[in-house]
Design a protein around this nucleic acid. Sequence first.
RNA 1: AGUCCCAUGGUGUAAUGGUAGCACUACAGUUUUUGGUACUGUCUGUCUAGGUUCGAAUCCUGGUGGGACUACCA
Length: 571
Amino acid sequence: MTEKMTNETSTEKRSLHFIEQAIVADLEAGKNGKKIQTRFPPEPNGYLHIGHAKAFILDFGIAAQYGGTCNLRFDDTNPEKEDTEYVDSIKEDIEWLGCKWDNIFYASDYFQQIWDFAVELIRKGHAYVDEQPAQAIADQKGTPTEPGQDSPYRNRPVEESLELFDKMNSGELEEGAMVLRAKIDMTHSNMHFRDPIIYRIIKTPHHRTGTAWNAYPMYDFAHGQSDYLEGVTHSLCTLEFEVHRPLYDYFVELMKNSTLARTDERQPRQIEFNRLNLTYTVMSKRKLLTLVQEGLVNGWDDPRMPTLCGYRRRGYSPESIHLFIDRIGYTKYEALNDISLLESAVREDLNKRATRVSGVLNPVKLTITNYPEGQVEMMEAVNNPEDENGGVHSIPFSGQLWMEREDFMEDAPKKFFRMTPGKEVRLKNAYIVKCTGCEKDANGEITEIFCEYDPNTKSGMPDSKRKVKGTLHWLSREHCIPAEVRLYDRLFKVENPGAEASEDFRTLLNPDSLKVLKECYVEPFAGSLGIGSYMQFQRLGYFTLDPDTNKEGRLIFNRTVGLRDTWSKKK
RNA sequence: AGUCCCAUGGUGUAAUGGUAGCACUACAGUUUUUGGUACUGUCUGUCUAGGUUCGAAUCCUGGUGGGACUACCA
């Protein structure tokens, strides 16, 4: 045996959740020839969001954990909504999170077999063609508390159904002309057993099979069938499919007794877990699509979107998403997870790896009146204090600096440890300076701050040991480079837009969700780090370079997540 | 109310009949050349009423509360 590979993404100890326990139990019982096979089955009708990540991290994770197989299967049974654009983005996002599929399958791969199965069901009297309009079928369905009524076509001859089913697929019928229904029980307490529709006519060409088919299977007649044909052993899905499980089992049982029966012992089992809900976040694909289509955000990868490509562009690392998913767990309780759980996971991961660079987001001039004119010194800065091997880089220092406007107060309260007249403060990696005053314009706005430096307090010198309460970041006006910074806030202003969006969820949008700061500066080193690298601007948060960054020497940064700012709360 | 599912601090999640623990949040403190990080501490919890048991968050029954199901979506 080779040495065991360590999985670095989840070193935290945790007990097995209920799905893992079920799998262990099945393994111990010797089910499915002691094999494990899962699948991630997205419909290619939109971009993947973080809720999907919770699902596929489980699907791929379970397979990896128990030496099984996990396939990516596109559930493409409704050509009206689906597109190859989505197929491509889904693959990209799964790979970004480091998950690897064994095979790529499509439900459309099984259209012929599912068709054959339907024909067999008709022959055996388990299905019939219904020619009623949709409304009539809905009316006969009853309600959860009242039984339904049989369709007048329910007991039509097998040969007739067979003939009509063929017509449904030939292209000669219009959409809605007729459907194929399973013949089960119109009085069943589970609505899904009231003769569910299993095939309908759709004339829109399919993104893979084109016009080869005109009749398409419904979810309930495709999902379990695909699972069974593929050899899936554990079909993991979200809680809302719980009511579908009896029907899933019903059809699997019929498949076992059909000409499509497997030669091995494998039989898929559906297990449901809670879907991801996040505060201040909309996870509905339909609503996310609306945001994109109406231009309320700048595309699926807008950094405010909860899509995986949105988080990627904002600068969230794949590791932090794994960490978050690992912490929230899988249960049957419909939880509403606080967004701070995600943000804390991002900060924890980025803190270990983000290069510390200087940036000033809201600049004001700081002039050292006693610093030799024209002198420039190179100051050494540690790249990452959390990483001993992170190395150093240098920052040019001069008497003409930028500092953060918030770091100065003319009349400061006692607990203000930053710059204020008469008090000493340290310039990070440089000298201790004493503030001597400031200059204001006609409106009373501060235009420049003055200070004097102590030449013996440069970092490394003996006098630099002197205790000063505050440490400020700075940039040399002559040497820094202009930048634009985008600060992202929550897209929605209410905690639970899902629950509160009774009329129009758009009214719940936060108008301040994007703030663009144009007069920003960063040190030259920040520009050299490039897209994809993580940076922490001193005390301001974590940033990444936006892919849109242009070439005119202006860098555009996205703030991934802010740091804790206890000062703002202490006031 | 028909069937099914769920209920542990503010949030999420452990404890699988035997000391209710962890993470996040909030608050307080220590360290710190980032008011960051790290570390320490504090606050706060088994929905309710019965039953079984030496012993119940856990098993049983009733209640309460929340959710799913009534698409030719998945």
